[in-house]
Design a protein around this nucleic acid. Structure first.
Lengths: 230, 230
DNA sequence: TCAAAAGTGTTGGCTGTACACCCATGG
DNA sequence: CCATGGGTGTACAGCCAACACTTTTGA
């Protein structure tokens, strides 16, 4: 191995990989890119890339996401760091994995220069992934469902204003089970974090729904969801 | 910067740092080492060190812990990865932080060659720490108290057999509040993970206490503690 | 007037919490 | 016999889960 950057001891490369979830077509979906170069050329992989010398890890994740997919300004959280010595055939690579959530309205994904293609894939029908990315994705999914029980993370899938049915649908899709409407609404209306906008949304041949929003600066607060037994 | 290991792009160094908690003298305590070399020579720091080329991150943490403190076989869990560009004055260092728990019985700490000194410090009276280690420690403490509510992590502070009062003391110290004895015992005895050994511990001028143990392979299972509201 | 989603209360069971006294032992 | 921690039960309150019908709108 050769190059201009030399050290007294071996240094691994450091990357970030980002698992971006959204809800779309009544399904949980994940953003993948098709690899343009070796190894795993042509296979699907998580977006991500190498850490720049002057940037923080969070910045690296944000930047790579913007470069490869055009997405920015979304909820981003560090997940876990993967460092098996053989996880990349080229050289030793330690990858700091992140997980991100994006509302279904902001789905416009632009495939960028260095990634041949970026596309959403249903979580329940994923193609084979490069590297150990399946493992990363599995962990991200566990974290997502765990956080449902004690954090207001579900709101990250919703636009600024939403109906209670929208919110209920998020929980139903993520929990994989139907939820009683009256109990759900009683719970949601009891949350101090959400408020009625006074507006309504008319959509189709039925009664219009009230629109709610998260109160300013109530994002990220603890929100316990009843059946958090798992 | 010079040396025999050269790369086409700059590579950060990767280390692990380990926050080891125990309970001792009725207090939560942390294991620190006094630094033998620059930078921060003579200051207290978390045990840890550089990743070897062939080892996994978990192995690195385990190895560094053994080398610097003589501790092995304890509960170890990845915490978070810290990578601020200026967190080490020597070079760019990305540190994967771990947190570990050890029962008070296994406290024998041997200071090893490359660390001048290893010692326990009460969490509520810590000396100034090197690098960003205060930040790491603060996060580890948050994780510890959070996990009390939903995992059986408190048992990691106990030896194989323990009395219910031992267990209660752990919770009281970590929660920082007194717990009702009858309610606590009702809860603990209802846990499917613990069983009566049939033995008793005689200690002092009072009634002997029943000894309990965790059932085999019930370590790490979900154990919800009642007042998990935070 | 019909279809389709929005909206609305009550009850029973369980679980968390508050609370005070007797027991077994060693000195 | 006394000091010390070990061990025990009950009653009330609040929360979760089950359950079905009316309202409003557009076509």
């Amino acid at each position: 191995m050769t190059g201009p950057y030399c050290y007294a001891y071996p240094h691994p490369a450091v990357t970030t990989d980002i698992v971006v979830f959204t809800i779309r077509d009544e399904q949980l979906q994940v953003l993948l890119i098709r690899r343009g170069g070796e190894p795993f050329r042509g296979q699907w992989a998580l977006p991500g890339g190498f850490l720049d010398p002057a940037e923080d890890l969070d910045q690296c994740a944000t930047r790579e996401l913007a470069e490869e997919t055009g997405l920015s300004g979304l909820y981003l959280e560090q997940l876990y760091t993967f460092g098996r010595p053989d996880r990349d055939p080229r050289e030793r690579v330690v990858s700091v994995a992140y997980f991100a959530l994006v509302p279904s309205q902001r789905l416009v994904v632009r495939a960028a220069s260095d990634a041949a293609e970026a596309a959403w894939h249903p979580f329940r029908a994923l193609p084979p992934l490069a590297f150990d990315h399946s493992e990363i994705l599995a962990l991200a999914h566990r974290r997502l469902t765990a956080k449902l029980g004690y954090s207001g993370i579900a709101f990250e899938f919703l636009p600024n204003t939403f109906t209670l049915s929208d919110l209920q649908r998020i929980y139903e899709i993520l929990l994989g089970e139907v939820v009683d409407k009256r109990n759900f609404r009683k719970w949601a209306l009891g949350l101090p974090q959400i408020e009625d906008t006074g507006e309504r949304r008319c959509a189709g041949n039925h009664r219009p729904a009230r629109l709610y929003r998260l109160k300013a600066n109530h994002r990220g607060h603890t929100i316990a969801y009843p059946g958090a037994t798992s």
